[in-house]
Nucleic acid binder design. Structure first.
Length: 276
DNA sequence: AACTGGGACAACCGCCAACCC
DNA sequence: AGGGTTGGCGGTTGTCCCAGT
């Protein structure tokens, strides 16, 4: 039965020996989903009878496995998945279902299509057809190498970020302790110790306010830190301005450390909001 | 604007092995 | 043991869409 018979409408499926063929309609999908929900996967040939579908068992199974299954992952194949596909294909060849088992949420059909569109053509384009196998292997190795390089770069970047965040954390902890000690001294001596005003320190104090393990004392310490005009904020004089300055500090963390991305900002915001 | 090539995706086909009676 | 049924798998084809010419 020719696909050309199909029109651009929902009911464009053709009938062959009593079975519908061609693209599935939303209604058919619904019936199939309902069938699997009630009866589970398997016994595909009874779907037609039990679900009222005019599709053969094979078609139903395929539709479910490749499209309707709830655990399917949608969207583009990631570089990591691509590297797995390359690696597995080098090991197993065209055993798509075996490869698919290494990629949860991806179907053999999807992987097969991906391979055909991305790699098969490339290998065909190789200038020397006589040494096709060698060229394939070379190409594969090169691709694997490139993937590995990419992965290594990503891992290094991640590690670097973690190290820098750790350093920042240590610095803040030390700073917080100093502030706590000085505040303790304050209450003892009834006179505030003269900490030099450094804008960057204020910004880091702002970070301390938003830090998850920040104690109430530490937050208080941050709020009592002298402002630009020499007043002590947190005493009710200019709290809105203080909050603004604190947020400036948060947003400027990128500039200071160069390692906190947008995600970190969102994270900090969610943590700091209760204090504002 | 029309044509073309390629990528992405969905679906079908044929073969085969496992299972059941 | 053997024939029929069922499900899984790999290959292939068709359609849609988009970018380039």
């Amino acid at each position: 039965m020719s696909w050309a018979l199909m029109t651009g409408h929902f009911d464009w499926g053709s009938i062959d020996e009593g079975w519908r063929k061609g693209p599935w309609t939303a209604e058919e999908d619904k019936l199939l989903i309902e069938y699997v929900r009630v009866h589970g996967e398997g016994r595909w040939n009874s779907v037609a009878r039990l679900a009222g579908l005019r599709r053969n068992g094979k078609s139903c199974r395929l539709r479910w496995v490749n499209y309707l299954r709830p655990d399917l992952k949608r969207g583009q194949i990631t570089p990591h998945e691509e590297s797995i596909i390359l690696e597995m294909h080098a090991r197993w060849g065209n055993r798509w279902s075996t490869i698919a088992r290494s990629l949860p949420g991806r179907t053999d059909n999807e992987i097969k299509n991906y391979w055909r569109t991305h790699f098969k053509k490339k290998t065909k384009l190789s200038p020397d057809n006589s040494s096709d196998h060698k060229t394939k292997a070379r190409l594969l190795k090169r691709q694997q190498f490139q993937q590995q390089q990419l992965l290594q770069q990503q891992q290094q970047l991640l590690q670097q970020q973690q190290e820098e965040e750790q350093e920042e954390l240590q610095y803040l902890n030390q700073f917080d302790m100093k502030r706590i000690m000085s505040l303790l001294g304050e209450t003892a001596q009834k006179s505030a110790p003269e900490l030099p005003y450094v804008p960057q320190l204020r910004q880091e104090m702002a970070t301390a306010v938003s830090y998850p393990n920040t104690t109430e004392e530490q937050q208080q310490a941050a709020l009592f830190y002298p402002t630009i005009d020499g007043n002590v904020s947190g005493s009710g004089s200019d709290t809105s301005n203080e909050v603004e300055v604190l947020w400036d500090g948060l947003w400027n963390l990128d500039d200071i450390n160069g390692n906190l991305g947008a995600t970190s900002k969102v994270w900090l915001y969610s943590l700091a909001t209760p204090f504002c």
